[in-house]
């Protein structure tokens, strides 16, 4: 595919504009880096926005401890290649300090606990803006999100009282203790992201391509198996060819049965798919307003 795809070009122009507004309006700036494709695309856009200078953001990873090994390696390499500061804060530390209690049981996930670790990190590091890879097409609470999303001094989002955002004038003014979350790829869909990755030849962790992996089925979702995971008696681990459609905490990231080896194959697969990306995310299946509630509390 060709780079001169008009709609991708416009989405890129918009995202770069937003990145530069962040650089100009804030002091202590981080990109929330999960090692997933959306955060990798953010880093790529930042590289393009500030060339030939180094990107003016640090990378912040909120580590649940439940990682795909490979993403950590990818993360470390990327940070050193860019010459930017890599900050890692651990959910395990928040648990040890009693800031949050670990969920128990088969569906236990550290996804929700991440918000506490993230907000603590924002306070500790005096971060006034955190750039995230959230997209409006992902989920209905996200469909309401602004590019520049204000957070009060408790780190909370008030979806009913958001700042109006007109044209491309982004107002990042805030009072002491407040911060902003900024979402430069708000208007991208999953397919746009993949087409962009293909057109820009962005390197991704190999987890996104087909590989053999031990998995099991829980309700309608295939989950990657890891030694610390608790299984229900009826669940059986087996090995097959899969790829990840999103990469996050291993306990709640669904995998897709797929033989796609190239970006072209992945793009075709995504274009034909009939299930949303988050349909494979166990954390969203909990309730109608699961995402809205987590976001109010300070989630990504």
């Amino acid at each position: 595919m060709n780079i001169n795809n008009e709609h991708l070009k416009e989405l890129e122009n918009e995202a770069i504009f937003v990145m530069r507004e962040v650089a100009a309006q804030f002091e202590r700036k981080v990109i929330l880096f999960s090692g997933g494709k959306d955060s990798i695309v953010l880093v790529h856009l930042a590289k393009k926005a500030f060339w030939p200078a180094r990107i003016p953001f640090s990378l912040l990873h909120i580590d649940t401890g439940h990682n795909f090994e490979e993403t950590l390696e990818f993360r470390d390499n990327l940070a050193s290649e860019l010459g930017v500061e890599l900050l890692v804060r651990y959910v395990q530390d928040s648990i040890n300090k009693g800031r949050v209690t670990e969920e128990q049981g088969v569906n236990a996930s550290r996804n929700k606990a991440q918000s506490v670790t993230l907000l603590d990190a924002i306070e500790e590091l005096k971060i006034d803006v955190a750039i995230g890879g959230g997209r409006r097409d992902e989920e209905k609470a996200r469909a309401k999100e602004r590019f520049f999303s204000h957070r009060n001094e408790f780190g909370q989002w008030d979806p009913k009282n958001q700042r109006p955002e007109l044209w491309n004038i982004f107002n990042g003014r805030k009072n002491m203790g407040e911060h902003f979350r900024v979402f430069p790829i708000s208007n991208w869909t999953e397919l746009d992201v993949w087409q962009y990755i293909m057109s820009e030849s962005i390197i991704l962790p190999s987890l996104y391509y087909t590989h053999k992996r031990k998995i099991f089925r829980r309700n309608d979702v295939f989950l990657a198996w890891a030694p610390f995971m608790k299984l229900k008696p009826t669940e059986e681990v087996f090995e097959t060819a899969v790829r990840c459609r999103t990469i996050g905490d291993i306990t709640c990231t669904g995998v897709t049965l797929s033989g796609a080896q190239t970006l072209e194959e992945i793009v075709s697969e995504i274009a034909a798919t009939r299930v949303t990306e988050r349909g494979g995310r166990y954390d969203d299946k909990r309730s109608e307003a699961a995402m809205e509630d987590r976001k109010r509390e300070g989630y990504f």
Binding site: M1, N5, A271
Partner: peptide
């Protein structure tokens, strides 16, 4: 629906 990923131009409205 067919998505064109063959490189042809696609505009944004």
């Amino acid at each position: 629906m067919k998505i064109n990923n063959n490189g042809s131009q696609k505009s944004l409205l």
